Computed example of a mutant assay.
Amino acid sequence: MTSEDTAPQQRGSTTATRAVVVTVAVVAVLLLGAAVGLLIQLPGSDSAGAPGRDSVDIGFTQDMAVHHLQGITMANTARDKTANPAIRQLAFDIESTQLEQVGRMKGWLSLWGAPEQSSDGTHMKWMESSSHDHTGSSSAGQTGLMPGMATSEELARLRSLSGTEFDVYFLQLMLRHHQGGAPMAQYAATHAGVPVVRTLADNMLKSQSSESEYMKQLIAERGAAPLP
């Protein structure tokens, strides 16, 4: 067998090894986040004092975990496909931060004895008007995709693109994703009953607001505009 024959095999082996390493790393981060969530001594974390099934704490934790998982998927795609160092670093930051947060939220849900998703398939019901907020929310109790989330067609298009076209579309989708999740984080930061849930939601809001401004800048530098 010639060196020309072995080169493709070596490249394939390297790619496969990298994929395994990345998968192991992702699982490790997710498990670490879950462990942190379980180990944190939450006020009222005993079964008698756990948040109610219709509480802001459980609803936000369930919905934001689902919302984050799509962001992680898009960030992982960008990290692998982009040739731009700034976008690759942004994607890595988003992926690693949101993986840890998802692990933490799933750990809390397990601690509270709550399912990972709402039992009736609706989202954002916990944002309906309450004694604290009489404005309500037009998105509360909705089914299907939450605000900011990409459709399956949009995700397929993202995977099909390359070069600058890919970079712009990734930034547009991720910016919209951050903006769609912001009202959820804002509501939880104000109305969640468990202090660490309010703190996490507030931290999400601050970090994603900063990332959103940066993405707007990167989009403008490429002569494009955010999605409508």
Score class of each variant (00 low, 15 high):
Asp5Asn: 05
Thr6Glu: 03
Ala7Pro: 07
Ala7Ser: 10
Gln9Glu: 04
Gln10Gly: 02
Ser13Glu: 04
Ala16Gly: 04
Ala19Phe: 07
Thr23Cys: 00
Val24His: 02
Val24Lys: 13
Val26Tyr: 08
Gly33Met: 03
Ala35His: 07
Ala35Met: 14
Ala35Gln: 12
Asp46Trp: 06
Ser47Arg: 14
Gly52Cys: 06
Arg53Tyr: 03
Val56Leu: 05
Val56Thr: 14
Asp57Thr: 15
Ile58Met: 03
Gly59Lys: 03
Gln62Asn: 09
Val66Met: 12
His68Val: 04
Thr77Met: 12
Ala78Asp: 09
Ala86Val: 15
Ala86Pro: 09
Ile87Asn: 06
Leu90His: 10
Ile94Gly: 00
Val102Trp: 01
Gly103Cys: 09
Arg104His: 04
Lys106Arg: 12
Leu109Asp: 04
Trp112Ile: 04
Ala114Ser: 10
Gln117Arg: 13
Lys125His: 10
Trp126His: 05
Glu128Ile: 03
Ser131Pro: 01
His132Ile: 00
His132Glu: 05
Asp133Glu: 00
Ser138Asp: 14
Gln142Lys: 13
Thr143Ala: 07
Leu145Lys: 11
Met149Tyr: 06
Ala150Gly: 11
Thr151Ala: 13
Ser152Ala: 15
Leu155Pro: 14
Leu158Phe: 09
Gly163Phe: 14
Phe166His: 15
Phe170Ser: 12
Gln172Ile: 13
Arg176Glu: 13
Gly181Asn: 08
Ala185Tyr: 03
Ala189Thr: 03
Pro195Thr: 00
Pro195Glu: 02
Arg198Pro: 05
Leu200Cys: 00
Leu200Ala: 02
Ser210Phe: 02
Tyr214His: 09
Ile219Asp: 05
Ala220Gln: 15
Arg222Met: 13
Gly223Ile: 05
